[in-house]
Amino acid sequence: MQPAVYCEISEIINSANVSSQLQPIYNLATNSVLGYEALVRGPENSLLHSPYHLFKAADAYKLTTALETLCIKKAIEKFSLLDLPGKLFINVTPNYVATQLNNANWLMHLLKKQGISPNRLVIELTEQSRADDIDQLKTALKRLKTFDIQFAIDDLGAGYSGLIQWSEMQPDIIKLDRHFVHNCHQQTHKQHFLRALLELANSTNALTIVEGIENQAELECIYNLGFNFAQGFYLGKPTATPTIATPNVIKSLISDAISQLIQQAEQSSQRLLN
């Protein structure tokens, strides 16, 4: 007799009983939505509702590939159904990209069927696991780029060899782990790290997204450091039907910045007149 967990995860995959929640990512400079990150959820009232337990169970019974394929399909279908603006960010393990996306024909067919242009898709390489074959991974990513699909390194600083992956694979987008932003307004050394990472990203033409914004002080800190893209519970939680509007905290942030610029311009003009 098979263990209960195996039966449950098998049934979830066979019946496609997972759903996607979407969390907004904002452009602070333009007060607009950059896109949405898709986050999988298992069945309600089940231990496997949590993505951690869902993938742990799939991994234990060698069903991770099937689960990841299902999650990609569900995310694309949900994004299309809601007709959301911007880009769709999907978390994928490096090994899945290397072995299952080296031939992206099925993915391109799915995008076309759902009416989503490939240049609106961002594959997020999770830092929680390493690639078994880095050359195979690089080949797969290079092929995806020929279709204008972008890729990001997710949670940089949280897992395996983030800087090595960055230098080896030249991602389009870097997503900084929330460790760097947590209480950054109170910790000067974190601000130094953030500045250095932003400068490095700019020098490699990579867009940088700061994850894990949880309060106004952190938001103001990363904005003042020069970051334009942000994500976090303070700005918007993952939901089944995310908003397309930007939160008032971003509008006030831009308004305050404009007021400061006007004030500085007035002060400069006054000094010239004097």
Rank of each mutant, 00 (worst) to 15 (best):
K73L: 05
L176D: 02
T126E: 02
P171L: 04
K145L: 06
V97W: 08
H49I: 09
H49L: 11
K175A: 02
Y96L: 02
Q136E: 07
N91Q: 11
G157F: 11
F147A: 11
N95M: 05
L67Y: 13
K138F: 01
L67H: 10
N103S: 09
L82A: 03
S129K: 12
I174P: 01
K74F: 04
I76H: 10
I123D: 07
L144R: 10
S50G: 09
K73Y: 07
N119A: 00
A66L: 13
K87A: 03
Y160H: 14
E168R: 04
K56D: 13
W166K: 00
K56E: 14
E124P: 03
Q100R: 13
P171V: 03
T99Y: 12
N119H: 10
A140G: 07
K175C: 00
D83F: 07
Q170T: 04
K62H: 15
S80T: 06
P94K: 09
I149V: 12
R143Q: 10
T146E: 11
R143S: 06
L70R: 12
N103T: 01
I153W: 02
L156D: 06
L125S: 01
H53I: 02
K87L: 15
A58V: 10
L81D: 11
A66E: 15
P51A: 08
I174L: 13
L88F: 05
D148L: 07
S117H: 14
